[in-house]
Design a protein around this nucleic acid. Structure first.
Lengths: 207, 207, 207, 207
DNA sequence: GATGAATGAGGGTTCATTCAT
DNA sequence: TATGAATGAACCCTCATTCAT
């Protein structure tokens, strides 16, 4: 009865807290890295007590991984957009997929990607998840696309079809450059993507 | 004469210890990252007392940076080999430079590179050094080479000349892939380099 | 009901621990001085873990200052007794105030005073507190008293009214002497106080 | 022969170094106190190597004590000036002795005195020396003087003759006040001395 | 479940002291 | 005797984790 008066049920409250903790963890981990992030700060930012964090997540590592999964989920969903359209150049499909990513390099999303690159080496399980849930799915979509492109003669080099890493290279390079050197020597991420795609795919005049 | 009998003078011993500490630091930092590396372990590995580490390096950060500089020096030296040869394709000059790097991806040198990528974000001074001593020199050599290549019509796209990052992309992507996913899905680093160069430079038949 | 059964609530326990730490800190700081006191020993004496000390006090300095304030508080309260009584000689009022202090020179309270004199120079904030909370209040009471005494002709020299330090001098000298030389050459603190007051105030026969 | 060319013999050099170390120690100990003073800084200030300090003084405590003795020596010598002059008031003799001390309260000499008061409690041997070499000699001179004064009727109270601490009180109080509170509430040290002497000795008109 | 006081192992850093040169 | 590199015990402080309320 009293429960009706509260806008959220207990489960809903728990879910809300869980999300708040994950969101706070994201900010703190991005800002400080795994080792330098204090659970205390995450709790404070989430507006809960320190102990509550441990009620929701076994330990610091699990919190990190849970946060990672939560953050990466939207990207997983976007991968499904990568489908060949009969009337489109494969390059255009891919470019349409990558362009928003490039624009996010300088946003918090880019920070997250940098974080995973930085910490991934020390979190095999995170790398597993990252590979299993993102890359293998992404490459599972890319490879057929690239094979079609190869068949259509859109590729400069047939080897590209088996090396989808080359498609993502401008994103990876851009993300790292931004994190390490942007303040010293800015890089035009869009140009980087465009030139790379120009090189991987044959020009329009040839197509 | 007595001095001849002792293999090392005091300063030489100090230098030797300094090197031992740097070498030990390299191993430990690569294995554990900055935060999780204990000075105690570095000291033990170097065969000195903990205090000795602080006698040689102000604090943990300085030790890390000194180690970084020491390790990167050989690479700095190698950059000078990047000179155009009148009778060689620019691609060949660049490929000759990059191929050894690719082969080092799976060696301790690669570990170091991964370490710098991981920790560089939290060590602006390290990034400064890395950019100032390595990248700006490397790009300072690459850009003229690429402009020559552009003039000779060796480039697929003239924009490459202003984006030397695309030349290094296979190394960067390879290093990261190795650190994150090699055990899950191996990547043929040589092929990655070859295909990328095939795409950036026009084929022989065209040249 | 259950709450009634437990003698201490959580906050009460925390308060009790806080007090225990302050009491332990007092003993240790008095015995060893600031620099030579180990937080570990304070914790042990207080019956808590080392971390608990830092849970209650930011750092060693704050612990010292908090202890100082806690210990000095009773003295602050006593100052209010320093009020003129119409039918009493000012000297008697002051003597009644100082005599208990003299008797405490050889007790832990005296140790604390010695400690503050020793460490005050290196703790400006402690000196500030000591001056602001104790001396300025004490002198604020003493000066009117002494002016009344001057008006009544009780003072040997009117200048005393503006130098209340002379009233406290026997205490200060006694405290220092006790700490430094008592074992070598004992000093009769009561006599010191009496003779000083005899000299500052005119004799009864004269009054 | 070559020795003739050097201006100082070996012993003289050693003496010079010894003095340099003592002088440096004085400055550092006064500035930082015993615990916070680093032998390294003393050595640097003295222009010698750290090891040299330990060649001249067994350990840090001995260095402190040696410095103390060296610094106090001039004061010991001054005590001999305290002799009764037939045609002078005892008060004048004493005042002539104390006035220069009062004027030194705000000088490095005063810092030294403060240092000894601060650290004396933790250095029984220093207190011993201070008492044996300074105070007992000083009081040995003062007491006869005061007895003469008592016999001459110069004293307000015969008890003063057995409490020479009251003579020194303005100095002690002044030194402490300066160290602890001068910046908060300045004290007129000369006035303090004058009023105290005015109170201890009978006025001129009576004498 | 939520809380936050308590824990205590851990690690960076300091510095008096030693000793080979 | 002078040097200063090396030592290592000591100690402050951090912070993930626990658990009584």
């Amino acid at each position: 009865m009293a429960k009706q008066l509260t806008p959220h049920s207990r489960v809903e409250q728990a879910k809300a807290r869980n999300d708040a903790i994950l969101a706070a963890a994201l900010v703190e981990f991005v800002a400080n890295g795994f080792a330098a992030t204090r659970i205390d700060d995450v709790a404070k930012r989430a507006g809960v007590a320190k102990g509550t964090v441990f009620h929701h997540f076994t330990d610091k590592e699990r919190l990190f991984e849970s946060m990672a999964r939560a953050v990466l989920q939207p990207w997983v969903d976007r991968i499904d957009q990568l489908v060949p359209a009969p009337d489109m150049l494969i390059r255009s499909v891919i470019e349409a997929f990558l362009t928003p990513l490039v624009e996010e390099i300088a946003t918090p999303r880019g920070d997250v990607l940098r974080l995973f690159i930085s910490e991934g080496m020390r979190f095999p399980r995170l790398a597993d998840f990252y590979h299993g849930e993102i890359l293998s799915k992404l490459f599972g979509r890319l490879r057929p696309l690239l094979r079609i492109a190869a068949a259509r003669g859109e590729l400069c080099n047939p080897g590209i079809a088996e090396l989808p890493q080359l498609i993502g290279a401008p994103i990876v390079v851009g993300v790292l450059w931004h994190g390490l050197f942007q303040r010293i020597e800015p890089l035009d991420h869009s140009a980087l993507l465009k030139v790379q795609l120009d090189c991987l795919f044959v020009g329009k005049d040839r197509g």
